[in-house]
Nucleic acid binder design. Sequence first.
DNA 1: TCTGTTAAAATTGATATGCAATCTGCACCT
DNA 2: AGGTGCAGATTGCATATCAATTTTAACAGA
Lengths: 228, 228
Amino acid sequence: MGNRSDEISKIVTRAIIHKQLLPGCKLSEQTLADIFSVSRAVVRQALIRLSEDGLVTMERNRGAFVSKPTYREAVEIYDALTILEQGVAAQLSGRLGAQGWAELRHHVELQHKAVEEKNDQLSDQLGSGFHEVLVRLSRNTVIQQMHAQLIRRTALLRSLVSSRFDYCGLLHDHGVLIDLLEQGKIAEAQELIAVHHHNVVKGYLMDDEPQPEIDTREALSRYVSQEA
Amino acid sequence: MGNRSDEISKIVTRAIIHKQLLPGCKLSEQTLADIFSVSRAVVRQALIRLSEDGLVTMERNRGAFVSKPTYREAVEIYDALTILEQGVAAQLSGRLGAQGWAELRHHVELQHKAVEEKNDQLSDQLGSGFHEVLVRLSRNTVIQQMHAQLIRRTALLRSLVSSRFDYCGLLHDHGVLIDLLEQGKIAEAQELIAVHHHNVVKGYLMDDEPQPEIDTREALSRYVSQEA
DNA sequence: TCTGTTAAAATTGATATGCAATCTGCACCT
DNA sequence: AGGTGCAGATTGCATATCAATTTTAACAGA
């Protein structure tokens, strides 16, 4: 689509994923309009796109902010990822051609190098990338898009915490997963996926436990709504 | 959210789901602006929301149309639904309280009456409703929203074909599914979910086989792009 | 009658501007 | 320090305008 608002939303998405725009950051309409040299109307459209995607939260008369997921949301997102990837894994196992397995192994290889070079930025990217490749091989664009959206939201989570992952362990999981799937051990593969994501979430837990800072507005909403 | 564009997009969504607006229908900006007594800008925002949801397709300089899913898309949507519900089922089995099972059975009861009264409209609605309740019981709003979006898109599919479902059979599946889950027979429950959705898609096959009518523009796009 | 061309009208995508409602920040007062 | 009130900034929406593109209609020719 050749829409200006679409381009802008994609650019801002990239900025958010690359931790240039951090959760909670205000996205002023006029500021963005100046930055992209477009009218406020176009910026609003871009912000709406972003909010539909979950990366941005719009508050009436207050404006748009980069979303700040709660811990609960993090768990839900990884649960959703687990379910999607378990389903895809079951479909792929036994049905994927040699070229598919090769692509997965190649991806693990790439990440292996990134980890060895201690390139955390790249390791991170390739880490998510593996899961994306896995889903892409299912050849189901609907699932692919849902999954991609979830991955974008995990990027939000990563910029919310300064967690240090056990990249080596997570990477090892990827390799084992491929083996299990190729051998048709679906149940074990699915269990591994669940544990894998569970480990990632645990990595978040370290410094972002229950709730970092509570939004007063949200905390009081239930009381305000039933005031006399 | 108190946005006007949000309200409008929800109203149009209802109209599409209720088959008042059919796939392929043109959604003129000015027309909608007149209908809702708002400016074109607000209508554009609503249309963007709808297109992000997949119910509406926007074509540059041509406008917005109610989406017309292909058969392939239908299969992909039901595959996605299958995966989501299989995952939710596995989580629910053994973990859901008595109240949860009761709610599910109650829902089947309601649909049973609707089918007896030959109220197809209501049967349809409750049919999707059962799946929504199932997912709601997972208490995962992320999965819930993804699932709800898929359900909306299945409504699109239903208005695209004049299929007559075997409501009785589908309803029976729901009852059996509850039994299987309550007994902890996860694998069988998951298989039933897959077969259930497969049967629904087969119902669509009857009169909407490969492609109803091909969009010339789309059909020729690959040739036009590489013309001399 | 059918086909192809051309001109007019309609539609979209985007901008600019104005305005009411609301929120924010800050000086001010107790 | 802590509450009050106002000025300025921001959002949400309306209207008006314009270029680009598409659609429609009229028209001419085979």
